[in-house]
């Protein structure tokens, strides 16, 4: 970490020794038009993925937590994508999201929806990647919600039902409020996950088309390991790390406030 901070103040092309350049790398980052671009992409991606994954995972957890036929099967199926390598997620979804022959567009076409250029159009590409990420990730968040659901004392629900509350009222006024710790944990993990999103994008689009899906880490990877400007890459990393720290700190503060 300390070494990384030092390198961020230098100009270093792997060969030879780092040259001290002071704040030059940070000044360059502020002037670099790609920096707001990749941060914007990452933010947009987060705005899609965080709420969508949270809601999907919550619905899954509620479904799986019932005592009806198939609940265990459903839990297994929902979690299964999470154990699979990211290469698989990326490649399988490139094929599923293929504009002309992909499964998704074929079914949408059958429903009368025109072909969506999921991964080839800058306006759609983040949605395409988000679909794959939700499929991959929702199972993990589901398990956190499940643990939260199982922590809710049975007596509370039963008492409410005896008092004549409908199932929906129990969900709205008892289950959801008590799930708040699990909810903030899921949200924090997803936000951090968003800030560090890389491998799906690397496999699915490599940042394209027209850099519309280039995330922050994608850019750091390009600068550091394609153009070998390690000093600048380290400076960009440091900025991302600072952001993640702030997000985590804010989340922890909010979590503590909720406990009061």
């Amino acid at each position: 970490m300390g070494f990384g901070t030092y390198v961020s103040f230098t100009e270093w092309g792997v060969m030879g020794d780092p040259q001290w350049v002071g704040l030059e790398n940070f000044r360059r980052a502020l002037a670099d038009p790609f920096v707001p671009k990749v941060w914007g992409n990452t933010l947009k991606y987060g705005l899609i993925v965080v709420p969508a994954t949270t809601l999907t995972a919550l619905a899954f957890a509620l479904f799986v937590n019932q005592r009806w036929w198939g609940a265990t099967l459903a839990r297994t199926v929902f979690y299964a994508p999470n154990v699979v390598a990211v290469t698989v997620i990326g490649l399988v979804w490139v094929w599923l999201l293929d504009t002309r022959f992909g499964l998704i567009n074929q079914y949408l076409g059958a429903a009368g929806v025109p072909n969506v250029p999921w991964l080839t159009n800058p306006a759609w590409v983040l949605f395409g990647i988000a679909l794959a990420s939700i499929w991959w990730d929702a199972g993990f968040s589901m398990v956190i919600f499940l643990a939260g659901l199982q922590d809710i004392p049975k007596e509370l629900r039963e008492a409410a039902q005896v008092d004549g509350a409908s199932k929906f009222q129990v969900l709205r006024h008892i289950v959801l409020p008590l799930l708040r710790p699990a909810l903030s944990l899921v949200a924090t993990l997803l936000i951090i996950g968003t800030l560090r999103v890389f491998s799906q994008i690397y496999v699915m689009t490599n940042g394209g088309p027209a850099n519309a899906s280039a995330s922050v880490i994608m850019y750091i990877y390009r600068i550091g390991f394609r153009e070998f400007e390690l000093g600048y890459a380290a400076a960009l990393s440091l900025m991302l790390f600072a952001t993640i720290l702030v997000v985590t700190a804010v989340e922890m503060r909010m979590l503590r406030v909720q406990r009061w």
Binding site: M1, F3, V14, G224, S237, I244
Partner: peptide, 13 residues
């Protein structure tokens, strides 16, 4: 709290 991607540049060096 530090994601691995953060440390990857210094680690690689």
């Amino acid at each position: 709290m530090i994601p691995s991607e953060m440390t990857i540049v210094p680690l690689f060096i």
